[in-house]
Amino acid sequence: DDVNRRTPIAFAEEGQLLYLLGDTREEFGGSAWSEVVHGHLGGMPPAVDLDREKLLADILIAASRDGMIDAAHDLSDGGLVQAIAESCLRGNTGARLIVPDGLDAFTFLFSESAGRAVVAVPRSEELRFTDMCGARGLPATRIGVIDGQGIDVQGQFTIPLDELRTAHETTIPGLVT
Rank of each mutant, 00 (worst) to 15 (best):
S31T: 11
P45N: 09
L103T: 07
D70K: 11
G78K: 02
I61S: 02
R116S: 01
Y19N: 01
D2W: 14
G79Y: 00
R123F: 11
P173I: 10
P139Y: 01
Y19P: 09
V153R: 04
Q149D: 15
S34R: 15
G29V: 07
D101N: 06
G39H: 13
A57K: 07
N92A: 11
R25M: 08
W33S: 11
V145A: 08
V81F: 12
P45D: 13
H38D: 15
G174F: 01
V176N: 09
L164G: 12
G91H: 00
L97W: 00
R123H: 12
A117L: 06
A120E: 05
V36W: 12
A72N: 05
D51I: 08
D51N: 13
M132R: 08
H38A: 15
A57E: 07
E26M: 06
L138Q: 06
L138R: 10
G30E: 12
I69W: 13
A117Q: 06
V118W: 01
P46F: 03
S87N: 07
H38P: 12
A85D: 09
R128P: 02
D1G: 11
P139E: 01
F110C: 10
V145K: 12
P122M: 05
A135K: 15
S64W: 00
P100N: 07
L80W: 10
D131E: 14
G67K: 09
V81R: 13
L97I: 03
D74T: 04
R52F: 03
A71V: 14
L138G: 02
P139V: 03
L161T: 11
S34F: 09
T141F: 02
D66E: 14
S124G: 08
S124L: 10
Q82G: 00
D74S: 06
A135T: 06
Q149P: 04
P46V: 04
Q149V: 10
P160E: 13
T130D: 06
L89T: 08
G155C: 14
I61Y: 06
R165P: 01
R25I: 00
R25S: 10
P45I: 05
V176Q: 13
A57Y: 02
D101T: 06
F110P: 09
T166K: 13
D104Q: 05
F11D: 06
Y19L: 08
P100W: 04
T24N: 03
L56D: 05
I143W: 02
I143G: 01
R6A: 09
I172V: 06
F11L: 15
L75R: 04
Q16V: 02
G79D: 00
Y19C: 03
G155I: 07
D2L: 14
I9V: 13
T170N: 02
G15P: 06
A135Q: 14
D104H: 03
V176S: 12
R6Q: 14
R65S: 06
L109C: 07
E86G: 05
